[in-house]
Design a protein around this nucleic acid. Sequence first.
DNA 1: TCTGGGGTCCTAGGACCC
DNA 2: TCTGGGGTCCTAGGACCC
Length: 423
Amino acid sequence: MFALVDCNNFFVSCERVFNPALQDKPVVVLSNNDGCVIARSNEAKQLGIAMGTPLFQIKNFLEQQRVAVYSSNYILYGDMSRRVMTLLADFSSDLLVYSIDEAFLDLKGIVPESEISGYAGLIRQTIFRGTGIPVTVGVAPTKTLAKVACHFGKKYPAYHNVCVIDTEEKRVRALHLLPVEEVWGVGRRHREKLHRAGVRTAWDLTQKSEAWVQHVMTATGVRTWKELQGFSCIEEKSMDHKKSICTSRSFSDRGLCRLEELEEAVANFAAECCLKLRQAGGRCGGLTVFAATSRFQSEGMTHVICQSRDLTVVTNDQQELISAALDLLRSGWADDRTYYYKKAGMTVWDLRYDGVVQPVLFDPVDRVRQAALARAVEEIKKKNGEDKIKIAVQGDGYRHFMKSQHRSRNYTTRLDDIIEVRV
DNA sequence: TCTGGGGTCCTAGGACCC
DNA sequence: TCTGGGGTCCTAGGACCC
């Protein structure tokens, strides 16, 4: 049996932990740049606020309804997530962190089937007491069915956020009640195709032949189809060994139009990628830099820069990555006219985690000096803080190009932001 | 005026090999 | 007029997830 533990309205719940006045009130959290709604409390959902709604479209409505609005605070959410996952690790040696707010636990051999419901309740209670975050636990023989269980655990209050699918009867009943588009792995495109074929519920999908599912939904769809029938076959890999790492941002207002501004942004993206790479203990064999005008820009005003490059020697050196990223940006820069770039970013790929570096005979880079410098910089950062030393081109202004007007404090990671309690 | 960020997997088709 | 057969590898694009 697998348990899926899913934090309820996670980003909103994080804000509520440190601001109890938000309890029972409508709350939304915005995407970076205060662009879209990406998390909603149940009260906000009841007001009809849809996931992904652009803020500007509902700004007045939010004010009228006295909805509390927060910019996203990923430092806070990331730290709260880490706390939740740390507690979860005590409940199974086989823990798979699936996203910032979800994890699968393999319960095989851990608890007898008759006690599973109680165990799930204990998980819920432990996480809430330890972090203040409410979670829902869904338990079933496959990960996809655990997702189904979790869905119903949230939907019906009588379950008290714990739902177990442990009999054939429960499985069949759950699948009949579940619209096919709610199934994990069925998105918008597949929903349309399935509806046209008369497939409305998860049960309907299981009644189709394997060949039909393979044709309509390819190999991933077949796995979903099997999982719904109770045959476990989705082997989610742990995210420790990512295949690529990306850092990207949108810019506020019209965007950036000068090369120097974009250079500053890209240098910071490269530095951020490098930090993530080092924290993961990896090196990369190549990189891509991109910048694009708004998706909503009228025709003729659009432009996309997207330049990639292999590295001759795998690296996680900050200077080298920043320098390579800037070369790529400049090589894609359009001189003929002015464009307003609304979004830019960088991806590193071909990641290696084995520490093996294959040298080349005529390497233009002095690796020994490079490593010595990187060590010195790292020491300074460790002693004085991550932001205390940087490459000059990173500048100090690029964050001003991004909007974040309703950010909460970093209650759990910054001493100056720690919460005060008066008695 | 304004519209997120970060990932994964699969497949078709092109390029190339002998 | 007519143009083989059997492979592998890579990549772009599509679909999905949170």
